[in-house]
Nucleic acid binder design. Sequence first.
DNA 1: GATGAATGAGGCTTCATTCAT
DNA 2: TATGAATGAAGCCTCATTCAT
Lengths: 217, 217, 217, 217
Amino acid sequence: MASKNEATARGSRRRTDAAGGAGAGGGGSARRAQLLAIAAEMFATRGYTQTTVRDIADEAGILSGSLYHHFDSKEAMLTEILRDFMGNLLGEIREIAKAEESPRAALDGLIYNSFETIHRVPFAVALYQNESALLTSTPEFAFVTKASLDVEKVWLGVLKAGAGAGDFRADLDPGLTYRFIRDAIWSTVRWYNPRGRLQHRTVADQYLEMLHGGLLA
Amino acid sequence: MASKNEATARGSRRRTDAAGGAGAGGGGSARRAQLLAIAAEMFATRGYTQTTVRDIADEAGILSGSLYHHFDSKEAMLTEILRDFMGNLLGEIREIAKAEESPRAALDGLIYNSFETIHRVPFAVALYQNESALLTSTPEFAFVTKASLDVEKVWLGVLKAGAGAGDFRADLDPGLTYRFIRDAIWSTVRWYNPRGRLQHRTVADQYLEMLHGGLLA
Amino acid sequence: MASKNEATARGSRRRTDAAGGAGAGGGGSARRAQLLAIAAEMFATRGYTQTTVRDIADEAGILSGSLYHHFDSKEAMLTEILRDFMGNLLGEIREIAKAEESPRAALDGLIYNSFETIHRVPFAVALYQNESALLTSTPEFAFVTKASLDVEKVWLGVLKAGAGAGDFRADLDPGLTYRFIRDAIWSTVRWYNPRGRLQHRTVADQYLEMLHGGLLA
Amino acid sequence: MASKNEATARGSRRRTDAAGGAGAGGGGSARRAQLLAIAAEMFATRGYTQTTVRDIADEAGILSGSLYHHFDSKEAMLTEILRDFMGNLLGEIREIAKAEESPRAALDGLIYNSFETIHRVPFAVALYQNESALLTSTPEFAFVTKASLDVEKVWLGVLKAGAGAGDFRADLDPGLTYRFIRDAIWSTVRWYNPRGRLQHRTVADQYLEMLHGGLLA
DNA sequence: GATGAATGAGGCTTCATTCAT
DNA sequence: TATGAATGAAGCCTCATTCAT
């Protein structure tokens, strides 16, 4: 969640952060990113609705009203967090699917990437996992659902290609397979501790073991 | 969600429903159960915090204040829903683990039971899945976490017994295996439609296939 | 507060308790008196507004709605308690003022009577003392203020007669003297314990000592 | 009610007013004091429970919710009013008891001070007098009872010293004497009108007359 | 006499948001 | 950028009261 600032959609008075890329990043948006990080953590930990604008402001050491100098609304904060997250995720995923040689290698790559993502931006992932009720019922968040479908397409492409190529068993429904993998993996965000003893690679390897060969001896 | 009549814990002024027994239960409080069912669905669909007591009352055709004739608070409703759910779940799970002959049969039984539960009481399951932030951060809901640990013990018992008996591969960490299965299965509540074309048995069978033999051809 | 039941004013469906006097008293109104006693104690102890109709019903072992078989309203209960109290008080006071020979004997009699009243019906007295804000601002309770004025007249009559007869000092304003005595005496209801070691007669004697001779040696 | 600025006790989010000093106080929070004055008058006049936060807000010309920008709760307002009052009272009383030469002069000083206090902050005194039911039954207000006991100690010290020195009669129980005086004096708040024709000094003088020499000619 | 369910009004409080300074 | 005061809407809950059974 380095520095990606996207202007909030609706007639915002906020400047589009021209910097964007790596390195440069003007000092102006440093506070923005910091506030978003605070918000993301609280949204993820307590829940979006349970987190008040004052909770965030308190944590940032300012008054709640002052947050509105940086963001149009509480919802805009969540939007920005999720937009960044989904955008990056989709980009990475597509790159992986394109780069890898075999479907099997691509699948493994996607899976490793998922665990890395959970490790790197756990709060964004948790948000995405836990706020599904809000995300699917609020039209403003339709972009999340749309991005999810784009993600699904990539994974399904890999799975189908793998089944065709003989990498994967052909008797399994790709749709169910995708959900199975997706749910098992992304759910780990609820219990995985980035600073715990279990490395994300370790978890990934074990999960791959199970996925590849199954449980039976 | 058989016996929905448990007296609310803390010095409640509400009567303990003497009936309680199995199945239909005495004339006690059909209304209570009805209101809880409405609440469960809304809590699950919109989220607990996003659901207002008036939403529930409106759906029930009464005024919001009238809910308090039946329940001490909004939170008490959630508590009762979850207490019933966790209690029943734990009872069923223990029975299965005890009744089945082999660890493998027990595991399959647990998995089938999970899908049946999702099919039968999807809202309670969804609540349990989606409100984790609330459930773990509010002391009043500590009983849920405790019951979860009890559930985990049963599953782990089966998995370890199976690894010892040669039913399951011995190179997998039982703890991670449990989480893997648990997360994959319970997450289906988010997309499984009890009235859709996919039968819960069908999903269960496919998931068992993947779990047993893995993905690779 | 034996059994005096007065029909509540406004088109009440309640019967006027014909019995009234001592002895006879039909069984019908026993419950009424009992409920009024409970209400009086709670009103006095917690305050009228802080006491809910359900508090009273709980204490009586019935549901709050059932109270309305006995009384028209919560306010009607307070009205009945106070009407009984003020009526009796006024009757007794007038008797004393008329019966005693000298103003000084009359004053002492009034004072003894006050302490006896506090001892006998502490809750009614406390109500009268503590709910002055409510009693003076609610038109329905104007009768209390009126009765208070009647009481004052009797006391003032004694005091003025005593000043004229040379019983009491003539340099004191009778109005202020009355308030001084009244406030000192009735306030004891706040700390006097009918079941404590201090007898009401003992307190009365001490107070009379101070009133008669003053504090200075 | 000189320094109205005491931070609300319990982990309040509100700032502690640094000013605090004597008299006018820094620019801190004039609004706070103003709102407290309004609240005190209404609490005293209508009763605490009968006064709604909207009553207070209406009188202040703001919305009821806006009150919570200044105070944590309705109860916190009462707490602050009473804490200021009791604190000041205790301070003054101790000063008087220490400064005066003879016990008799000290007693007179205490009594004059009481009447002045009633004249100066009638609402706080009335609150203290009228809300005893609330004050003694709510643990949050235990500090009031405690301060009352401290006040009592000062008075009792003077009375006992006076009895020992031969200033006062020795045949009177000091405890009863204290209550007698206290109740007679503080009760005047219920009928004394600061803007009426009776000066508080006049009332004080008459009361002292009665207390000193008694009623009898 | 009493129950149980409900009403309707209103109370305290929270919270996202605005805006003058 | 930030503060401090305020708004307005809404949320949870309480409570006196009613009424069919």
